[in-house]
Simulated assay, not measured.
Amino acid sequence: MVDVTGRVTSLNISYDAGGDGGCSMSDTRPWDGTKTLGRGGAAAGTVTYSTPLAAGGLANVTSKHHMYVVASGAIPTQPNVNWDNPWRIRCDSQVGANPGCVVPDIRANFEFSLAEFGGAAATYGWAQNALRGGAPLSRDSSETTASTRREYTCGSKSSDPFVYMDDVVPNDSCDEFPFATSYEGGTNGASCADIVPLLENGQWMIYEARTDKPVTGTEPRVRGHVSNGNAGLALGRYVQRDGFSTPRSTTFT
């Protein structure tokens, strides 16, 4: 209760919750009965929502709220206040073994540490900033299409084969960005910028990989020469752990 005026020195408030999209609550009330609040008073409680989902299932949920407010001894003219959560909630069981829920309009950020992921993180960061202007990515949950995208960028479907440089990058591998697991991935390797990230004097430097294919800065994608690492596995675990759906963005540290 922020303030009171005149003869209204307190209000009696009750609250209950609801929702659509198949969600349910074991108890719709964060507190039983009414709470009487004067100036500076507060009432708080918890309502737990659940949305059962079969494997591969999807539900879009809106939480709903109702509050009943009256002053003692008064005749209420409009005591009911109803509103919906402005953020739509998406729950799905389409990633990993456990279902999860997200607010799709709020983009999540996965940070690739240079200290942990080295050349892979340097490749992603350079491409995200130099080629894409920080634009977010939208994740595709289909491993089938992701495999096809990898083939077009780094594999046999590319019209310009990836040239390994094990003499410069030990255990060299082709790492693409945007990821093959994003809708933005999968560009033919011929249109990619080919770069070599190298750690020199504690700083990651980005070099052109081929003199016959200069980097222009206008390429839509990048192929980085990086040592075999676990950046892709970390991204996969992140998606499964947090139950993410599209769209998603990526940031870098």
Rank of each mutant, 00 (worst) to 15 (best):
M1T: 13
M1K: 07
S10E: 14
W31N: 03
G38L: 04
R39C: 09
P52T: 08
A59N: 08
T62A: 08
K64L: 14
Y68H: 14
V69C: 15
A71I: 06
P86V: 15
P86A: 15
W87V: 06
W87Q: 08
Q94D: 03
V95R: 12
V95H: 01
G96M: 14
P99Q: 07
V102N: 09
V103N: 04
V103P: 00
P104G: 00
R107L: 13
W126D: 01
A127W: 04
P136V: 08
L137I: 15
D140G: 14
T145N: 09
T145Q: 12
D166R: 15
D167N: 15
N171I: 05
N171K: 13
C174I: 10
T181I: 11
T181C: 05
P197S: 02
L198F: 05
E200Q: 12
G202S: 07
I206C: 04
R210Y: 15
D212M: 12
R221L: 04
V222Y: 05
G224N: 04
N228F: 10
N230T: 12
L233T: 13
L235I: 14
R237V: 14
Y238Q: 11
Q240P: 04
R241Y: 13
T246N: 11
R248I: 15
S249V: 12
T250H: 05
T251G: 07
T251C: 01
